[in-house]
Each structure stands twice: as structure tokens, then as C-alpha cells.
Design a protein around this nucleic acid. Structure first.
Lengths: 201, 201
DNA sequence: CTTCAAAAATGAACCGACCCCATCCTGAAT
DNA sequence: ATTCAGGATGGGGTCGGTTCATTTTTGAAG
């Protein structure tokens, strides 16, 4: 049966993740050693590697948590978007951004993004890319949901790709600069959405 | 005087860079060790660190070469843009992309981008960000140069930021997938530019 | 020439991620 | 209770980037 053994296993994985999260909030990703995580979770270093193939995979598990919740939030917006393209984009994308620091720090996002780019083809990168694609699809869905308010005959798919590319890059720029405030990110994006909505109306 | 000493120093730096470039084209960035670069340049490992503070700084020197040339190309396009916004964007951005693999490989771009994101505040990251800003400014300049062909009253600055964000992200996506062809990147971007130009006309 | 302080080169040593493996522990099936 | 397989253990090892104390080279002054 899958009883105690599996339960212990799940508990151990949870404990490792929880401790890793705590340590990553106290110090930077780089400053936390696998040995530290193991010690905090009261297991041996080897055991951590039994659950997570690399330090990056520990991070990925934390990122997934965050992104799954962001996707849920986004689905709600797409299902009932506010009036007006600019407002709808503000709601969706602002929602992404505002939730993004619930569990993770800017440093953790930086390391996650750097890993996806620097190590493509790894488990980490593939899963991360999958999450990204689901976000991209949500943006496209929102445009489609709002198409009644747009000039007819527009090529929505390339526009959605452009919007997603731009929001993704803006987020990367945001986490890259430790001092940048969430408010200024939101303001900048609102300006973009307003300009775009004006052009597409 | 500045004679022999400085000359030798410059020569050695060049030799290290040239050998690094050659090795990076034979194997991946990660697979090339600092020791290999040192051996190829016929100096000791420590000496390489005398010239470049980190492995990333070696890469940065190569990236700068590439980007400086791209910026020159771009300046020519901005000075005399082709008729039509879509055509102008195709020329500028297509020019960026097509030159980007002259000296560097996709792998080198990936590592460079990953480093800027993962290690902000380092010399590497700051210089890279500076190059990026000059590209961003060029896109804004092109929009201004084309403003006669656009609907009046548009907020050009946010639009330029959005276009730049999207082209940057598209490039990152391009280098992330080893199999993706330059032609398909160019095609995708042409679709975006056409859609945008239609909306802004 | 010789001298010498500064500049530069050197390579051994350090550190942390990751791997390996001989050994021990523990839950489940008999 | 006993057996046994799947994990856990943790010490030792590899690897590569980076550091640093030490040695060598340099070029200008005496």
C-alpha cells in the first residue's frame, strides 16, 4: 500500500521545500547552500538530491506554486473581463504582477528566469516554458473575449504575442532592478495598454 | 611612458579574447573552462583573471563587439527609414536580428542574457543594460521619424517601449530554442509589425 | 650596467554544486 | 517476529570558477 512510506516521503519533500523557501527569504538564492537546506529540513544533503535533481529544481517547485495561483486569478479575469480593452489588460496583467511577489522575491524570480534561459532543455526550463505558454494563451484569450470592442479585421494572434512579449520583458526588467517599485511597473503598463487600446479601438 | 607595457597588455587581452571566441564556437560556454582559454592564449589561469574579472566578463567583451555593430546598422536605418511603419520596423528589427549571429552563437546569447538577469549590479549586467538602452532609444527614434505616417495624438513613448520589449523577448525566445530558424523569427515579427502598423495608421 | 618598486604572471588552494557508494534504517509482507 | 527492499545516510570525490600569496618581469632612475 501507499501508506506510511509515501506519506513520509511527501512530508519530507514538503519540509524541504518549506525550509528552502524560508532560507531563500533570509538570504539570496546563491548564498543558500544545498547543505543549508538539508540541515534546516533535518535531512542529509544526499536526501535533498533524492527529491530534487538540482538546486534549480527546488526553485522550480516554488515558482510553480506561484504561477499556478496566478493562472487561476487570470482565468477569472478572462471569464469576466472589465469593460474596455485597456481596463481588461490592466486587470489581467496587473493581477499577474501583483500576485507575483506573494511567495517569491525578486531575487528568486531573477534566478528562475536566468535558469530557464541559460539552461534550455533541462526539466526546469521545459516546465517553466510550459507555464509561460499558459500565460501567453490567457492573454490571447482575453483579446478574443474583447474583440467586440476592437476594430474589425485586426490580426489578434500577433497582437497577443506582442502584448505577452512586452509584459514578460517588463516583468524581467522589474525584477532586475531591486529598487523598482511595483507601482511604477503598473503605471508604465497602464500607459502601454491605454496607447494600444486607443490604437485598436 | 605608456609604451611597451600597455602594448603587451592590449595584445594579451586581444589574444585571450580571440582564443575564447574560437573555443566558444567549438564548444558551449559552459564546456569551455577558464583554464582552456588560458591554455589556448598561452597564459596562466590567473592571468586571464587579471584581464577579465569573471568568465562572464570575457563573454561581455564579445557581446559588446556584436552590439556596437548592430547599433551602427540601426542608426543608418533610423537616419533613412523605408516608407511605411511596418517596413521601417522590419528593416530596423530585422537588421538587429540578422546581424546578431555574426560573431555570437545562440548559446553565447543565452548565457549573456541569463547573466544579465541573474547577476544584476555586476559590471557585466550594467554594461549590458546600457547597450540595451541604446537599442531601446533607437526604436523610439524610429517611431518619431515615422510619426508623419501615424495617426496623430498617439503616445509614442509607451508604444516604443512595448515594441522594444516585444522584440527583446522574441529574441530571447529565439535563442532559447536551438532549432528555431532565423526565417521564422523574421516572419513572426513581420506579422506583428503589419498588425501594429495597420492599427496605428 | 645595476637596482628596485611596481606591475603582472603564476598555479596551488578554496569553495560549493553535484555524484557515488557502502552501510544503515524502516515500513510492509510473510 | 523476521525478512527484505526502498530509501536515507553522510563521508569522500570530482569539477570548475575564483582567489591569493608568491615569484617573475619590467622599465626607468642612478
Amino acid at each position: 500500500m501507499a501508506g506510511l512510506r509515501a506519506k513520509h516521503k511527501a512530508e519530507r519533500a514538503d519540509r524541504i521545500l518549506a525550509q528552502a523557501m524560508a532560507l531563500f527569504h533570509e538570504a539570496s538564492f546563491d548564498a543558500v547552500r544545498m547543505e543549508d537546506i538539508a540541515a534546516a529540513a533535518e535531512v542529509s544533503t544526499g536526501t535533498v538530491y533524492n527529491y530534487f535533481a538540482t538546486k534549480g529544481d527546488v526553485l522550480l517547485a516554488l515558482v510553480s506554486l506561484e504561477v499556478e495561483e496566478v493562472l487561476e486569478l487570470g482565468a477569472a479575469v478572462v471569464a469576466a473581463p472589465p469593460e474596455g480593452l485597456a481596463e481588461a489588460l490592466d486587470a489581467l496583467i496587473g493581477g499577474y504582477y501583483e500576485h507575483s511577489l506573494t511567495y517569491l522575491t525578486k531575487d528568486l524570480w531573477r534566478q528562475a528566469i536566468a535558469l530557464t534561459i541559460g539552461a534550455p532543455g533541462t526539466r526546469f526550463s521545459l516546465i517553466y516554458a510550459g507555464l509561460d505558454d499558459r500565460l501567453r494563451a490567457q492573454v490571447a484569450d482575453l483579446l478574443i473575449a474583447c474583440r467586440g470592442q476592437l476594430r474589425p479585421g485586426l490580426a489578434l494572434a500577433p497582437l497577443a504575442d506582442m502584448i505577452f512579449g512586452s509584459l514578460n520583458q517588463a516583468f524581467t526588467d522589474f525584477v532586475r532592478v531591486e529598487e523598482m517599485e511595483m507601482a511604477s511597473l503598473l503605471t508604465a503598463m497602464r500607459a502601454r495598454h491605454a496607447a494600444l487600446a486607443q490604437a485598436l479601438a
